[in-house]
Design a protein around this nucleic acid. Structure first.
Length: 433
RNA sequence: UCCCCGGUAGCUCAAUGGCAGAGCAUUCGGCUGUUAACCGAAGGGUUGUAGGUUCGAGUCCCACCCGGGGAGCCA
């Protein structure tokens, strides 16, 4: 076996006519008397290895017929072009070596329920559909990093442990930090504001945690968020950045992960259409749109999933809704100089009912106004002393936003639930495996 | 926290209040081109848990446990 060169299935075309070995696992098997068809996967792809009784030792043929699903095997043979193969090639087997047996693998090539598959998430990752989703997740994350790295942003990692709530309202996971309490971060934003005053254009990218008891297809307790922040940007600059960024990420996936989108049966034309400019409407216009479409919405209410869906259905691109009432938004949102009841904030709602993927806006840069907001929200002033320093020492207009990775993956992949968009999802009722 | 749905073989599901079943998986046998292969056979059950109604409960009633979907909540 050692004389054969190790080849990955994704690059098998380079070895046509040569003898190679594939190191992987048995995905599925079919037999036909004097033939065994072994579907072998190695992480880079799946290839059919054909064992013909007349070509190999009787012992090799016999053993090949006994290999069970997900047994790890090294398959050696000749790479042959074959039109019947979905990847264009198959292996004419000369030898098969079993590395590790797999006895009664639980995920059979038939349908299974979500609860069962989530219990077996560590094995479910081996299936082609999960490969497609997680490769697209990889592409999205790579595109996110490339976009900011290529546009003059500096990566600044935000801490995971935080001494108190960024906004004081949401449920945080509490943990012990020596002899005091600490919380898992729900956002790196306040730290990005400090970093923007130091470096101009910055972003952070990492996990965030929310302890809300939400059981919906859009919620995880642990999820990943990318948060850019730019000094001297106003709300319009922020919306320009958001749409340029989202267009780039979507188009990179369309360009580089077409095969994976096809595995998921995604309508790619809908993604190809995600090009600038994106529609921008005010909160007031959104309220009007809701009332016109039979979804009564009083001025002053925040939008839930139903409202977001009705609005997103009016467009075939992500829509940016800006200038919400200050009351429903966080304390650090800058007050609109044209109307004190409004905040200079923006949410981006993905099309096809996928909901909010971006939330952000211009930050309050006036120290007195910010102090009032902290008091109105009954937040502990001393915890925000360092944050006030950013207004005390050379305050400038600045803006930023956060994009939720899992909701973006869910939208681009066309999934029903965010739980498949992350390798090991953490939800209200599920922390294992 | 609230509302809705569900829990039967390893998995996906069926069973009018009357013998607990099928497909897949597993094991054995057959087939030279299979594509969730096919054909034949075998093994496999505390029907989520605990009560109750009934001659008789997987099925009806009550409580609880677990899961799924949604709401609230969630920049």
């Amino acid at each position: 076996m050692s004389e054969y060169k190790h080849a990955y299935i994704s690059e098998i075309g380079k070895y046509e006519g040569q003898d190679v070995c594939i190191k992987g696992w048995l995905y599925n098997k079919r037999s036909s008397g004097k033939l065994h068809f072994l579907q072998v996967r190695d992480g880079s792809g799946i290839i059919q290895a054909v064992v013909f009784k007349g070509d190999v030792d009787p012992e090799v043929f016999e053993n090949a017929g006994r290999i069970t699903q997900e047994t790890s095997i090294v398959v050696c043979g000749t790479v042959k072009e074959d039109k019947r193969s979905t990847i264009g090639y198959e292996i004419g087997v000369k030898d098969v070596q079993v590395i590790g047996e797999s006895v009664e693998y639980p995920i059979t090539p038939k349908e299974h329920g979500v609860a069962f598959l989530l219990d077996k998430r560590h094995l479910w990752l081996r299936s082609p559909r999960q490969h497609a989703i997680l490769k697209i997740r990889h592409e999205i994350i790579k595109s996110v990093r490339d976009y900011f790295n290529n546009n003059g942003f500096l990566l600044i990692d935000a801490p995971i442990f935080t001494p108190s709530a960024c906004e004081g309202t949401t449920n945080l996971f509490e943990t012990e930090y020596f002899d005091e309490k600490a919380y898992l971060t729900q956002s790196g934003q306040l730290y990005m504001e400090a970093a923007a005053m130091a470096f101009g254009k910055v972003y952070c990218f990492g996990p965030t945690f929310r302890a809300e008891k939400s059981k919906t297809r859009r919620h995880l307790t642990e999820f990943w968020m990318v948060e850019p922040e730019v000094a001297y940007n106003d709300l319009n600059d922020n919306m320009d950045l958001a749409e340029d960024f989202v267009e780039y990420v979507v188009q990179q996936v369309v360009k580089n992960r077409r095969a994976e989108l096809e595995v998921l049966e995604r309508d790619i034309s809908k993604l190809e259409n995600i090009k600038k400019p994106f529609p921008r409407i005010t909160y007031d216009e959104a309220i009007e749109m809701l009332n016109k479409n039979g979804k009564e919405a009083p001025w002053g209410d925040d939008f839930g999933g139903d409202e977001e869906t009705v609005i997103s259905e009016q467009f075939d691109k992500p829509v940016m809704i800006h200038r919400y009432p200050s009351e429903v938004k966080a304390f650090y949102m800058k007050q609109d100089p044209q109307n004190a009841k409004l905040a200079l904030c923006v949410d981006m709602i993905a099309p096809e009912g996928y909901g909010e993927i971006i939330g952000g806006g211009q930050r309050e840069d006036n120290m007195d106004v910010l102090l009032n907001k902290i008091q109105e929200h009954k937040l502990p002033e001393e915890a925000f002393e360092w944050y006030m320093d950013l207004r005390r020492y050379g305050s400038v207009p600045h803006a930023g936003f956060g994009l939720g990775i899992e909701r973006t993956v869910s939208w681009i992949c066309g999934l029903h639930h965010v739980r498949e968009t992350i390798p090991f999802p953490r939800m209200m009722e599920r922390i294992r495996p």
